[in-house]
Amino acid sequence: MAAAAAAGAGPEMVRGQVFDVGPRYTNLSYIGEGAYGMVCSAYDNVNKVRVAIKKISPFEHQTYCQRTLREIKILLRFRHENIIGINDIIRAPTIEQMKDVYIVQDLMETDLYKLLKTQHLSNDHICYFLYQILRGLKYIHSANVLHRDLKPSNLLLNTTCDLKICDFGLARVADPDHDHTGFLTEYVATRWYRAPEIMLNSKGYTKSIDIWSVGCILAEMLSNRPIFPGKHYLDQLNHILGILGSPSQEDLNCIINLKARNYLLSLPHKNKVPWNRLFPNADSKALDLLDKMLTFNPHKRIEVEQALAHPYLEQYYDPSDEPIAEAPFKFDMELDDLPKEKLKELIFEETARFQPGYRS
């Protein structure tokens, strides 16, 4: 834990890192770190609560700039109880001085990944967590956004079992017609939660990839272990087919990539493993919904509104309290091709509203 900075004593240090967030945020305490930044909790002297502050230093890398800009653009436009918001952003007053960006968010005690390492969940908890994931996802999908990296560590939890989806750095506007060349190379989302079509096709992607990830998360809540822990690309596919069985001819016809289709045709026939054999203690309604989410063919996979209306979630289902976005989200430009200098300018502009004396 960093010592509390005395008023006016300059930035606090946390594990050798400068955290320049005073005077409003003090009493910093280390939480963890990701690929390009550290997260601390801090005391907000204005709202009198502890908050989470993520320090991001992305400006050396085009990919990190892209992810940072995506996350900020999306989260500043989203407003939903099951999606983490941005409360404040701290950065230098000029673009030349801006080396880091500090993002202030609600402090959540833990995440689903940490929880599943230590606790076996009751059916009631599984049901409530799944409902909140789908409630947040309904809003995301209504904005025409794909999260693309749903996994237990991106689901934040607090002691009252509130759940918030975080990390929109890989999110995209849904565009089933656009052929994202190089899709697989830039697709760094965790393999275990990846839909089979991501490994088999490169053309376009749809909201059904997020539903697949939610199915993987439900299976993990039922058993405290990942359902498809593939060691590499082909191993991942083999794990999936080992449980779902061989795809039907109709399902194979959806695979545009001939090499991928021929690979699947070359494999020995596998039978589907019954879900109640894998999860003998699970609620039968939970397994019915799991089956509809972990469907090989993305066109037959359940959609988020149908999933919310499934009998497993009937005690929570309330369409009048499951809000959607006001308007579909649009990125003005494809960020993939922009140089990091341009992305830095866009991050600077996007964060201006939090600067003292800002006038829109």
Rank of each mutant, 00 (worst) to 15 (best):
K99P: 04
G22C: 10
L241M: 00
K259A: 04
A9W: 15
A4M: 09
V104M: 09
C65L: 05
E12M: 13
T68C: 15
A352K: 09
R301A: 03
Y36I: 05
I256N: 02
N82L: 07
D251F: 08
Y358L: 06
K138W: 09
N158W: 03
P229C: 09
G357V: 00
S266W: 12
V51N: 15
R353I: 00
L150H: 08
I72L: 04
L294M: 03
L287R: 08
C166I: 08
E305L: 13
P58T: 00
R148K: 02
P268L: 02
S202H: 07
R77V: 15
D210T: 03
L244C: 13
L184R: 05
L146N: 10
I133T: 13
G22A: 08
S266N: 06
P152S: 03
L244Q: 02
H232R: 04
I31A: 15
L264R: 07
G34R: 01
G37V: 00
N144E: 04
L155W: 08
Q315W: 15
S213M: 10
A286I: 15
C254D: 12
Q306K: 11
T185A: 02
L184Y: 04
F78Q: 07
S41W: 09
V214P: 01
L69W: 15
Y30D: 11
F228A: 13
K300V: 11
I133N: 00
I165H: 08
I95S: 10
Y312W: 12
A92I: 15
R353P: 12
M333D: 09
N123G: 08
L116M: 05
Y139P: 07
L289S: 02
D336R: 05
C254Q: 11
H232Q: 01
D44H: 10
I126R: 07
R172T: 04
N201D: 08
D100P: 11
P274D: 09
L237G: 02
L121S: 05
P319Y: 12
Q236F: 03
L234D: 07
I83C: 14
L130A: 07
F331R: 15
E349W: 15
A309D: 08
L137T: 11
V21H: 02
S223E: 05
S122A: 12
D321V: 01
A286K: 12
V145F: 04
D20T: 09
I95T: 11
E326M: 12
R191P: 01
Q66F: 10
I324R: 13
L115G: 14
Y30V: 14
I31D: 10
F329E: 09
M13L: 00
N257A: 10
G242N: 14
E60T: 15
Y233D: 00
A5W: 07
I198K: 04
Q97P: 07
E303C: 10
I126A: 11
S142V: 12
R277P: 11
L134H: 07
H61K: 12
I324P: 15
L28E: 12
P58V: 14
P319Q: 00
T110H: 11
K117E: 07
L116F: 08
A286N: 15
Y317V: 15
Y30I: 10
E345H: 14
P229G: 04
L265G: 12
N87P: 12
E33H: 12
R135A: 11
P268N: 12
F168P: 08
Y358R: 08
I211W: 01
D283C: 15
Y233C: 03
D162M: 14
M13P: 02
G37H: 02
L287E: 06
G37A: 03
V273N: 15
D167R: 07
G169D: 02
R225F: 13
K340C: 11
K340N: 00
I126L: 05
T190I: 04
N238R: 08
C161L: 10
T190F: 04
A174C: 11
L137W: 08
T110C: 07
